[in-house]
Nucleic acid binder design. Structure first.
Lengths: 331, 331
DNA sequence: CTGAAAGCGCTTACAG
DNA sequence: CTGAAAGCGCTTACAG
């Protein structure tokens, strides 16, 4: 592997000049530049990222941290979309993504490594629960980072998030407008902010339409299909006429339970979800839901992080992406 | 973020001493060591990985490269198990895994980055197709690496692999012993070595039992469920009495097609798979298959890589993990 | 426009 | 057992 110094010798210029060429620094005669580029190509020179970072430059690598175990990573349908969009967006800017796998037990060590590795230009953290140690650590460091999912308390943090509350609000309003009066909800994992926001939207819709909020109709489904099934069994007993599941995955479970109980959807009990996961269009009946633009979440996060890295942005930026109603047959 | 130099000053020793303490170098008085450790802890010192690597030391980070698009990564049931086992094995040795996401278009740039980043102690590459550019690049570098999945031509490469050929051979023998005479096979993606090995095992079993190899009964299912369905429809028309699907996922498709055609499994047409994926035990009838120890594949790979990094191993090591027959009801 | 030089934060022989 | 010093491969002011 040739070094920059060797390239300099081969091209008959100084290291500084080679460095400038490599980094597209505008200073430099075109003639010299062309010659150096030629040598670089012939020698198949690749600058050492480690040395580059130590010297004060960019690595072109950003870290993606999804503080969630492997099983969950693979079972949640959002992550593939997110990974793909982050990855594509990075590639367009000639940046590379590294995904950090974190087992809960070792989290602190991994956090230290992410921050101190000194190799990352920036970090994107996804899948926030309310208290996420890595966020605190990142805040104290001076590594640029953006969150996917808003932070509940710290307003100085850059993030992109879906407008979960408004999405939930809109779809519950839709249920109310179609004549439903006793609407239950199956909530997501309770320590996740998205869950809390979606529940908030549900409550807001009820309140604005003078419907009572009945705690017994608010059940925790933990974002799992099984949770959807169990909560729905319970809600059927409580005689609801509609169910808002805080994810399509839970709605899928709900649908199974409704079918097993012989309930007509949406006539007897309407069912709506949130996310617009691929499965939503293939259920029977197809699921009315609210579309979350997960791909936008990823690409916006990269865009924002890139601005931070290049110092284009100073004051914290917070990007909220609206959700869109997807009318189908289930509610 | 304090540097090693600052720690040295605080502890009243030289940088060398701090470095030795940090790296568990046995040289050093216990008293001095304890004092330095104390300072390190109080200052929350974390050595810079980039500097560490540049200086000639270890980063404690290994790269995991799965040269496959995100959609496939998430659809193939093997990968979660693999990721989990690699991740756990690394954590046990205080190493961290970085997963490199590679979109096909940008592969060369990413390959360069993996190798030249100079931050990785070693690399594990999984999911090999016959020609994998990263393997060639890695061979030319002096970065330690191990393959998960054997390499078809280069014998100087360290790898761990399942004994795919033997596994396929055994399960096809089982089919033959139970009286089946016209056995079709649905093969995996043709440019993958595992596919080729499994096909080879199928052929070997037929040959050794004086059964004819009929090219018409060898169909490419591309490791997809859909492929399993289509190939099975075809094989039914060709009147086979047994099917060996080269993955459980394809076997699942095959089972669907068999059911739709009203075939009794295994009486009319027996069906066997390979992998022993979770789904294998829940189909109706449960799938007879051959168990692939994916978790072992991951942990052995880490173990081997760790040896390479620590120079314990010189001559190339190739670890073959046997597959075990899982008798169930489908064949 | 280009080069000499200092510096990034470590590790590791080499002396003592 | 410990320290002074060189070196890893870059970047970036600073001169010219």
């Amino acid at each position: 592997v040739p070094t920059l110094e060797e390239i300099a010798k081969l091209a008959g210029v100084s290291r500084s000049t080679v460095s400038r060429v490599v980094n597209d620094n505008p200073r430099g005669k075109d003639y010299t530049r062309a010659r150096v580029l030629d040598v670089i190509q012939k020698a198949n020179f690749q600058p050492s990222t480690a040395a580059r970072r130590l010297g004060g430059g960019r690595s072109g690598i950003i870290g993606l941290v999804i503080p969630v175990g492997v099983p969950k990573l693979f079972s949640d349908p959002c992550f593939p979309v997110l990974l793909q969009s982050v990855s594509s967006a990075c590639n367009k800017q000639s940046m590379t993504v590294m995904l950090w796998l974190a087992e809960p037990d070792y989290e602190q060590r991994i956090i230290n490594q992410i921050i101190n590795t000194d190799i990352l230009d920036g970090v994107i953290v996804s899948s926030m629960s309310v208290t996420e140690p890595i966020v605190e650590a990142l805040s104290k460091s001076n590594l640029p980072f953006v969150l996917i999912g808003r932070h509940p308390t710290n307003n100085n943090i850059n993030f992109v998030d879906s407008d979960n509350q408004n999405g939930a609000y809109n779809i519950v309003c839709h249920l109310i407008k179609s004549g439903k009066k006793k609407i239950g909800t199956i909530t997501g994992t309770s320590n996740m902010i998205a869950s809390q926001d979606r529940l908030e939207g549900y409550k807001q819709a009820l309140i604005e339409h003078d419907l009572e909020i009945i705690p017994d109709l608010i059940l925790d489904g933990d974002f799992s299909e099984e949770g959807g099934i169990e909560c729905t069994k319970d809600l059927i007993l409580k005689d609801v006429d509609a169910i808002f599941a805080a994810s399509d995955f839970m709605a899928l479970g709900a649908l199974k339970a409704l079918k097993e109980a012989g309930k007509q959807v949406p006539q007897e009990i309407a069912l709506v979800g949130i996310d617009d996961a691929p499965l939503a269009s293939t259920t029977d009946p197809p699921l009315t839901t609210v579309k979350q633009a997960t791909d936008l979440l990823g690409s916006k996060a990269v865009e924002l992080l890139s601005e931070l890295i290049n110092n284009k942005s100073t004051s914290p930026k917070q990007i909220i992406i609206p959700l869109e109603l997807q009318m189908r047959k289930s509610g």
